[in-house]
Write a protein that binds this DNA or RNA. Structure first.
Lengths: 225, 225
DNA sequence: AGAGAAAGCGGAGGGCCCTCCGCTGAGACC
DNA sequence: GGTCTCAGCGGAGGGCCCTCCGCTTTCTCT
């Protein structure tokens, strides 16, 4: 995802390529092809996906796939990270539109929906999350940042606790997804997220009736998709 | 332990029931050897364990291992289930000794500690939990039953919510373990269990200062980044 | 005791994972 | 353009997973 290495202004070749060409063109293209094929394959497949089939479909050798993505997790994370922007970006959008505690629940739902579409890679994603191999520096941090923004806003408004570490909430969410997002336990995911919400409200502010709509003045189930 | 149907060890009693085929003595011994070897190997190993090495160490062919345990999960669950009794049994013991909400937290801690010792099989356990392949009929149910006992007791005492499904709490716990029990995030596990406790208290009964910036009771010395 | 049946055994085999390494050709420099 | 060089390529190879099937051993019945 990043181009760390910096070739010292190799720009002056015949055709200037926007000033920065650290990687060979063909290598970059291979990488992109691999991600594209992987995304499609992961989305289509239900169970495990063979990396060799991805390499084959992308028209490269298995060695090339492993050159670009040293582990299965690396490839999965690349696909996952590439699509995560929508989720993280929606945090501030939601905060503009709703009070923090409503925005939080809504954001959780969106994240859950996002994860639910990752069928073909859930297993790997799961293993990677759990072991910290995935998302420690990159992805998880982005999630935690988005989450932290909402939590801080709610803390200021007094509708969310101020004494929780956003990282703990991230872990909690991943845990909920890990334990429910695999099968068809979609409603259970919703109930568990409700429990998480309950844990995040300040002592006095819990809404007694649990089922139904949490309301809070704005309709528990948001109108948006 | 499962032991689907244990015919009286009619290894070679003169008369055996004809409707009911006893398991051959040697087959049973093989099964037990496999579980014993697997338990030792899983406990010793840190990462993934080769099933072929288990079969080899048990002195049987790989085919025999797969005959007894058709999937890796089946073997892991057999080992796991065999040691689960201590945990489930402790539920009623704890209820005798403590008020329900204290017993609940204590029980969670014990379960967490138990899972934490399962190092060599966490990955498989995780995948099995998440997919429902493990523990759906057997193990998970035992956990849920133990948990339900504590929850019911707390509900009656008014110190725990009455409107939560024990199965949801089981899923929540598994989620917490799934997302933290892998690495050394032991203290995070504690904090997350604290959040779960908060979610399970009835609206009025939350203890305001207890957890938070500092820690829950014992040694939450986690530095927040 | 002897024989027949089938439960149970073991390992070959095919597929996937990931590593390693010799070769090719893109790009830099002349 | 021509040459040099190493980034990048591809696939062979070793290990593990799991299946399949012919052979062995145990148990039952006579």
């Amino acid at each position: 995802m990043s181009s760390p290495e910096a070739t010292p202004a190799a720009a002056r070749t015949g055709q200037a390529d926007r000033g920065d060409r650290p990687v060979r063109a063909h290598a970059r293209r291979n990488r992109e092809t691999l991600i594209a094929v992987a995304r499609a394959t992961f989305a289509a497949a239900e169970g495990t996906v063979s990396l060799e089939s991805i390499a084959r479909d992308a028209g490269v050798g298995i060695g090339t796939l492993y050159r670009h993505f040293p582990t299965r997790e690396a490839l999965v994370e690349a696909v996952y990270a590439a699509e995560l922007d929508d989720v993280t970006a929606s945090a501030s959008t939601l905060l503009d539109a709703f009070p923090p505690e409503v925005a939080l629940r809504e954001w959780m739902d969106r994240y859950a929906a996002f994860v639910a579409t990752k069928r073909g890679m859930v297993d790997t994603l799961r293993a990677g999350w759990a072991s910290g191999r995935i998302a420690t520096p990159t992805t998880r941090e982005r999630i935690t940042t988005a989450l932290g923004m909402i939590l801080a806003s709610g803390a200021q408004a007094g509708t969310l606790r101020a004494d929780v570490d956003p990282e703990d909430v991230t872990a909690m969410l991943l845990g909920v997804f890990l334990s429910t997002a695999a099968s068809d336990r979609w409603e259970q995911t919703g109930r568990l997220l409700g429990l998480v919400m309950d844990a995040l409200r300040p002592p006095g502010a819990r809404t007694p009736p649990r089922r139904g709509g949490d309301a809070a003045g704005g309709g528990g189930n948001r109108p948006s998709p």
